[in-house]
Computed example of a mutant assay.
Amino acid sequence: MRIAIFTDTFYPDINGVAQTLKRLTNFLENQNITFKLFAPASPTEELASCHIHRSKSLSFFMYPECRLAFPNLSQMKSELLNFLPDLIHVATPFNIGLCGVYFSKKLNIPLVGSYHTNFDHYLQSYSLSFLSKLHWNYMHWFYQSCKKIFVPSSVTFQLLKQHGFTNLELWPRGVDCQLFHPYYDKKSVKNRYIRGDSYLLTYVGRLAPEKDLSTLLAAAKSIPSDINQRIHWLIIGDGPLRDELETQAPGNMTFTGYLDGERLAEVYAASDLFVFPSASETFGNVVLESLASGTPVIGAKSGGVQNIIKPGVTGLLCNPGNVHDFSEAILQLLTNEPLRRKMGTSGRNYALTQSWDHILNNLICHYTDVIQEREQQIYA
C-alpha cells in the first residue's frame, strides 16, 4: 500500500489537523506502510525530507502560525510519478489539497478526503455568514470525487449528511494515555504558576474569534468574589486575539503561550477544571486530552465536543455563548470535590478506551477497501 497525503498544515504547526496527521504518518511508518506527504514548508524545517515534500509558503495574515503554500505542480507531478501511490488522501481544501484533487483526476488515482474544520461556523465568527452558501458549494465541489469522506464525530457526520454529502465514514480521534495521565506531581506544577492553595482552571487552544473566548472571560469575571479570589486561570495557546484578551483579562488569568508535550500534559493533570467554550469544533482533541489527564471538562453543547463529554459523568455541557451556564457549571464543580474526583476518574477510564492504534487500523481498512475496489474495476 502506497499512500499520498496532501495537506495545508502539518507538524510543526500547532493545531488539531497537524496533530492528527502527524499521528497518522507515525503510525504508517511503524506499520511499514509507504507514504509521501505534501505540505507547506515550515520556517523551522527544510523544504523536503525522505517522506515529505514541502512547498514554499508564506505566513497567512489572519493566522501567522499557519502557512499559505505555493506548490510547484511539475515537481509534485514528478514526485507522484516516481512514488506511484495507490491512493491519495486530501486533508484540507486549500492550495495543497487542491493539488491532491487535481492529480487524482489527472493521474487516475483513487481519492479519499477528510473533513476536519467547520468553516461555516468560522464564517459566522468573522461576520461573513453571507458566504455560507458559497462555502458549501465549494465543499461539495472539492469532495465530490472522494470515494470516502472521513469525519471526526457523529455530530459532524450528521451535519455533512444534512448538507447532502455521501460516502461519509467516521474517523474519530484517539489520545496518548501514556503522555496524558493524572499521575504528574500536581503540587509542583501548581507552584510553578500560582501561589497558595488556589483552584487551577485551564483553557487550551487557539486564541481566535471562533473559540468564543469572550464567553470564557465573561464567565471568569462573573464568579462571586469569595470563590474568585481562590481561582487562577491558565490560558494556553496563541493567536490573533491574544493581545486583546490579555488587555481585557482579569488579574487572576495568566497567558502562557503554546505548551506541548509533557509541559502541557502536567498542566492538564494539575488543573481542577478544563473550560472550553468553543462551539465550532468538529471533534475537540484538547477535551479528550483533559479527560485522559483525569480533569473534568466544562464545554459547549455543540459540535464534536458534545460527543466526548458525558454530562454529569465526565463533565458538564453548557449552552453555547451562555455566560451564566458556564459560571454556574464552574461553581457547581468547584464546590463539590467528590463529584470532581469521580468525574476525573470516569474521564480517564473513557480516554483509555480511545486507542489510536484501533482508530488508525480502521482507517487503513477503509484505504484497503477503496484500493481493492479500484483494482476490481481495472481487472473486471
Rank of each mutant, 00 (worst) to 15 (best):
D197S: 15
I359E: 13
T156E: 14
R263Q: 14
Y183D: 03
N285Y: 02
G312P: 07
H358C: 04
R2D: 02
G251Y: 01
T345E: 01
W356F: 12
F119A: 08
T314Q: 11
S145Q: 12
E328I: 02
N191S: 14
L84P: 01
A48P: 07
Y184I: 02
V17P: 14
I5G: 13
H89V: 08
K221H: 10
D243C: 06
E29N: 08
L123G: 10
G315R: 15
E65M: 13
H51Y: 09
F10M: 09
Y102M: 07
F150Y: 11
A91V: 10
G100T: 02
L352K: 12
C177I: 09
S198N: 12
Y115D: 02
I5S: 09
F60E: 04
L339K: 11
L37A: 15
V267C: 09
S293R: 00
F83I: 00
A279Q: 05
C177E: 12
K310S: 10
K105R: 12
L58S: 14
A4S: 15
A279R: 08
Y268L: 01
L333F: 08
N82V: 03
A4Y: 06
L107R: 02
Y63C: 04
D260L: 04
E289Y: 08
I5C: 14
I231R: 10
P320A: 10
K77V: 03
F70V: 14
F27V: 08
L179M: 08
L241N: 09
S114G: 10
G284M: 07
T117L: 07
Q31T: 06
S125P: 01
N285D: 14
D8H: 02
V297Q: 10
F283Y: 08
H366A: 07
V204W: 01
T215Q: 07
I308D: 03
T295R: 02
L234K: 03
N26W: 03
I3T: 05
S293K: 04
C66G: 12
Q162F: 13
Y268D: 03
S104W: 00
T117E: 09
G312A: 07
I3Y: 04
V286L: 01
E45M: 14
A218N: 07
A300V: 12
N15T: 02
N26Q: 13
G97M: 07
D13E: 15
P277K: 03
D8Y: 00
E262T: 03
E373T: 11
L21T: 06
K133Y: 06
G303L: 00
V204A: 13
Q306I: 14
L317P: 00
L131A: 14
G347H: 01
L264D: 11
I364V: 05
K187M: 04
S188Y: 03
D13N: 15
G113M: 09
A48N: 14
Y367V: 12
E169W: 00
P320T: 05
K77S: 11
A220P: 06
F94L: 15
G16N: 04
Q229A: 06
E244A: 14
G315W: 13
P152Y: 08
H53I: 15
F180K: 11
Q229S: 15
N30S: 15
N95Q: 12
L24G: 07
Q332D: 14
A18D: 05
